[in-house]
Design a protein around this nucleic acid. Structure first.
Lengths: 160, 160
DNA sequence: GGTGGCGTTTAGTTGATACTGAACGCCGTT
DNA sequence: AACGGCGTTCAGTATCAACTAAACGCCACC
């Protein structure tokens, strides 16, 4: 592997690690981000110099998170992985879902907890209102972006 | 402390832990979120049943992240902490900054790495474009929300 | 100048988890 | 039915970070 490429892969390892994922998951992601074609588990393992078991576990983890996609080829028993084509939309949506859980906890607290203080109550309401507003903004932004993408690829289709 | 309150505090502990912060930091945040007034370090430590050192370190951490604010009182050497008033805007802006670093890495890779594949290049460009777009959407949304807040508090001021 | 209350720092412990290497199970092929 | 190639799983380890408790340093007040 190229030295610069290895640097990038390593940076991605650290970046996703700071996001709560295993470092190897980040490395797999980084490598596939720069790969033209899908890669098999053994391919990934040897390229990254890590055990096959780790790659298997982490590739599946990334797949479940919507970061990677699994692919198969006719008359080939191996699994191949690649990055999800519309990666950005997926990860963004997933982040939103993660926040949602957090804000649900606050909402639940607001309704079920015996809150004496008007100040606290107002603080929680304010927070929820802000979340609701921004959640809507982001959702609307995502659909607008997808619309742009679709229109662009439709035009590209005409040019073929 | 109330049992339900303890549940909530514990949930916040887990929530912020899954965000890369120490669990105690989450507990401090949860407790202060439900507190009418500021709390001293010793107060927090005894209420949460953890060591004073942990509270000191983690409260400062949350302050540096813009989650908490430190307060002091005349003729009192103790530090008091409370949640940042416009918590939501702060945390949102901080998340954006964190993403930025990630996307800078991708941008850097795109320009410095020798990328042979047109497909890969297009993938990276697409990703960056999406990020730029959504970053703008979120920023614009945040300023709109702050505008709403200011107008509302101005009206509330008139009514006093 | 000593004393007590405060926040901070640090050595040490504990707990969690990423990772490895090997065993396992499955299936297609011979 | 044995074999080989594949993905998965699991016991063992090693690393890392949170947390505690105690020492420390600082400042105000006596």
């Amino acid at each position: 592997m190229n030295a610069q490429t290895m640097d990038f892969v390593e940076r991605m390892g650290l970046a996703l690690e700071s996001d709560g994922l295993p470092r190897i998951a980040g490395r797999i992601f980084g490598l596939l981000l720069l790969s033209e074609d899908c890669r098999s588990l053994d391919d990934l393992a040897s390229e990254l110099g890590v055990s096959k078991g780790s790659v298997s576990t982490n590739a599946r983890l990334l797949q479940q998170r919507g970061v990677l996609e699994r692919d198969s080829r006719p008359s080939d028993r191996r699994d191949y992985y690649r990055v999800q084509p519309d990666l950005f939309t997926h990860t963004m949506a997933q982040r939103l879902a993660r926040w949602q859980r957090f804000h649900e906890a606050i909402g639940e607290a607001r309704t079920t907890l015996p809150i004496r203080s008007r100040k606290v109550l107002h603080r929680l309401e304010e927070y929820q209102a802000a979340y609701a507003f921004m959640s809507e903004v982001i959702h609307e932004g995502l659909t607008r972006w997808q619309g742009k993408r679709e229109r662009r690829s439709a035009v590209a289709g005409l040019h073929r």
